[in-house]
Design a protein around this nucleic acid. Structure first.
Length: 456
RNA sequence: GGAGGAGUGGCCGAGCGGUCGAAGGCAACGGACUUGAAAUCCGUCGUGCCCUCACGGGUACCGUGGGUUCGAAUCCCACCUCCUCCGCCA
């Protein structure tokens, strides 16, 4: 959530940003309309909601002040002669009752107004880094690494070119989607044989890299309270939610350890010498994939459950600290995919595709020969203080001599070290051999225990 | 799962229904003393929101949410969390 003061002080900036992000806040004011008038109208409605709340708040505080005055007067009554107390007390009690009733009334109205405002304000996305391409989905390519293999030159024939990961995995008996569907449903799966070892090897490898870079390793809960999800900018409720909720509880299955790592420090004020604070988390990730039926539905690319090693950083809000950390996290992700020997492209994600909390987002897309295109394998976002505000994660900046400095919200960043399912797709497809076998990337061999899977 | 106990400021810890945003201690910060440091002494020292250019004023917060009362950190109810004991169990 953004600072509400931004709405009061620079509403135009909010409107411009809404337009760039194509984010609809109110059902009847959407980005599908011509021009940016809808964004302007959205901001005006937000301002109206804020005013309504402030007015009630002022009135409520005024009544409370009167209540306090009545109480103070009541205290003095005790010092009067006994005979006079009764008479002095009666009107105060009467006034107090009236004020209490009025206060209850106003409290309810103010609370409702605040809820209405925040419900809408909470959906307003973060501001957008100036260099982010302003577009629905035309991302900027930052750079490339590696060269896709020339399969034809290696003896893959025209009719039998490189196969996709599902074909490979099935021929080598590495996955079982049929049983997954029977037991848990479409898009659930079992990994089998070397795929299990490969999956664990990726985790082990990524954790090692994270640790080397100073991240404290964690395994995290795979569930989290709704409140935490909301703090991180996720919407567990709503028709197109990506989040599984547990019935009769306020728990959700996490879609990423970003949630559990970010939520870990909710409601704390950190001493500045603890920053930057780097944590990495291994968790399962659950996604409903609502609305994505049919999209890349084959195989492991888009599934309901996978395992991920996540990087997370809390930095001070000074200067370009978080921007520098963002580059650092991207560099770690690149290090991992270079070590795995997977060609990739790095994208600066366009404004229309950023998601609510991100100020800027870099994706790595690895080359996937099976589809003849790049596919997303990591994503790192700098969310500035957008998440910290609702989670109340602050730090105390260095004071300038006399006084302790006011706490400030930290900046929060997240990034994928490795999502094993997507990495498996890339590995199987890039390391396939003409004889049907798959080479194991060298860095993973110590854990897989062999240098080649198959042929079978 | 059953029975008890507890949740107060960065930490520890007091707190009779009105004089409590809350004693005291530690830590931190500023100053004095010192060649420097330690020790000692003096002082400062929670957070949010609203109003104000500012000085400042108002209001709220003692795990969370309700309730009783003219008035709640203090009484009542529910929930959350932690601790102890019993039971069960990877």
């Amino acid at each position: 959530m953004l600072d509400i003061k931004l709405l009061r002080e620079s509403p135009a900036e909010i409107a411009t940003n809404l337009a760039a992000r194509h984010v609809r806040i109110f059902d009847d004011l959407g980005s599908d309309e011509a021009g940016d008038g809808w964004a302007q109208a959205t901001v005006e409605r937000l301002v109206g909601l804020d005013h309504a709340y402030l007015e009630l708040l002022r009135e409520q505080e005024d009544v409370r002040r009167q209540q306090n005055e009545t109480s103070a007067a009541m205290k003095k009554v005790g010092k009067l002669p006994k005979a006079e107390q009764q008479a002095a007390r009666a009107p105060l009690v009467e006034a107090g009752r009236r004020l209490r009733d009025r206060e209850h009334e106003l409290a309810e109205l103010a609370q409702a107004a605040l809820t209405a405002r925040d419900e809408a304000w909470g959906r307003v996305p973060n501001l957008t880094h100036p260099e982010v391409p302003r577009s629905h989905d035309q991302h900027r390519e930052l750079h490339r690494w590696g060269t896709p293999r020339d399969f034809a030159a290696e003896g893959f024939t025209a009719e039998q070119g490189p196969r996709d990961h599902l074909t490979i995995a099935e021929s080598l008996d590495l996955v079982d989607f049929a049983s997954g569907a029977k037991v848990a449903g479409q898009k659930f799966y079992y990994l089998k044989n070397e795929a299990v070892l490969l999956d664990l090897a990726l985790q082990h490898f990524a954790l090692g890299v994270a640790r080397k870079h100073g991240f404290t390793l964690h395994t995290t809960p795979d569930l989290a309270r709704e409140e935490i999800l909301q703090g991180l900018g996720f919407n567990p409720r709503g028709e197109s939610t990506q989040v599984y909720s547990v019935e009769n509880s306020d728990l959700c299955l996490v879609g990423t350890a970003e949630i559990t790592l970010g939520g870990m420090l909710a409601d704390t004020i950190l001493e500045i010498d603890r920053l930057p604070l780097l944590v990495a988390g291994l968790s399962h990730c659950f996604r409903t994939e609502a609305g994505s039926a049919g999209q890349e539905s084959r195989g492991l690319y888009r599934v309901h459950q996978f395992t991920k090693v996540e990087l997370f950083a809390f930095t001070a809000a000074e200067g370009d600290e978080s921007a520098a950390m963002h580059q650092r996290m991207l560099a770690i992700e690149e290090e991992i995919f270079q070590a795995l020997g997977l060609p990739y492209v790095v994208l600066d994600i366009a404004s229309g595709d950023l998601g609510g909390p991100a100020y800027r987002k870099f994706d790595i897309e690895a080359w996937m020969p099976g589809r003849g295109d790049f596919g997303e394998v990591t994503s790192t976002s700098n969310c500035l203080d957008y998440q910290a505000r609702r989670l109340k994660i602050r730090y105390r900046p260095d004071g300038d001599g006399k006084k302790k400095a006011k706490p400030k919200y930290v900046h929060m960043l997240n990034g994928t070290a490795v999502a094993t399912s997507r990495a498996l797709v890339a590995i199987l497809e890039n390391y396939q051999q003409a004889d049907g076998s798959v080479l194991v990337p060298e860095v993973l061999r110590p854990w897989v225990g062999c240098d080649r899977i198959g042929p079978r």
